[in-house]
Simulated scan of single mutants.
Amino acid sequence: MSFGNIVLLVIVGIAAYLIAIYNKFVSLRAGIDAAWSDIDVQLKRRYDLIPALVDTVKGYKNYEADTLEKVIKARQVGLTASSIEEKSAAANMLSGALSKLFALAEAYPDLKANENFLHLQGELSRLEETIQNARRYYNAIVRDYNAKLESFPDLFVAQKFNFEPRDYFELEESEAEAVKKMPKIDL
């Protein structure tokens, strides 16, 4: 092999390596977008259940209106949130409000026995678990993507093509405890 062929082979090898790095970034970014879409769908499903839950609880006269207002407000904030940070904060707020709602339901035996309430509570509990699993998956892909952004020599490709770090979909520690305490009901 001549020197020219060796140089050409090295250049082709470097180009192929850089293309592979770029394609991995594109693949990870698409995975993040798909994982976020899954979370968004699950959050929407949870927000769609809230009006039925509120209507069921409103039927009980002495029920704390303040708790219902917090649930309604948290739902509205979630529906209008646009960024991941806003949606994360809204999801945390709703989880906290729902856990308080379910805790207060313990004081109302008729409400606890209401079939519609139990069904909605079970659906919300299953959705919380699904959201938690989707959040873990999303955060794992974001972690891999963000780590790749800072890895050598990948960071040069990331900078050249403006790949930006992504935010995690985080659950506040206090809200994580509240979600763990939500009742699990199998219907």
Rank of each mutant, 00 (worst) to 15 (best):
N114D: 15
A89D: 10
I32N: 02
A107D: 15
K87C: 02
L98I: 07
A97N: 12
Y108K: 07
L111M: 07
Y63E: 02
A16R: 06
E115G: 10
G13F: 10
E177C: 00
S99L: 06
K180R: 13
F152P: 03
L68E: 00
L98K: 01
D110T: 14
L111N: 06
Q159S: 15
Y108F: 13
K61T: 11
Y17D: 08
Q159H: 13
T67E: 03
Y17H: 12
A81M: 03
Y63C: 02
I39N: 00
A134Y: 11
K181E: 13
K73C: 07
R135C: 01
Q121Y: 07
A52L: 06
E86T: 03
A52R: 06
R135E: 06
S174F: 14
L149N: 05
A15Q: 03
S95N: 08
Q42W: 05
E106W: 07
M182H: 07
P183V: 15
K184I: 12
L43A: 03
Y63W: 10
E150T: 11
H119T: 13
V41E: 00
E129R: 13
T67Y: 06
G96A: 04
A65M: 12
E86I: 04
G59W: 01
K73G: 12
Y22L: 05
K148F: 05
E170R: 12
D33T: 08
D66I: 12
Q76P: 01
L118G: 07
V7T: 07
N62G: 15
V26K: 09
P109Y: 08
N116A: 09
F169K: 00
I19E: 12
V157F: 01
L98M: 08
Y47A: 08
S151L: 09
N146W: 09
A103G: 08
L43Q: 05
A35S: 07
A65R: 15
R45H: 09
K100D: 15
L79N: 14
D38M: 09
Y108R: 05
L18F: 13
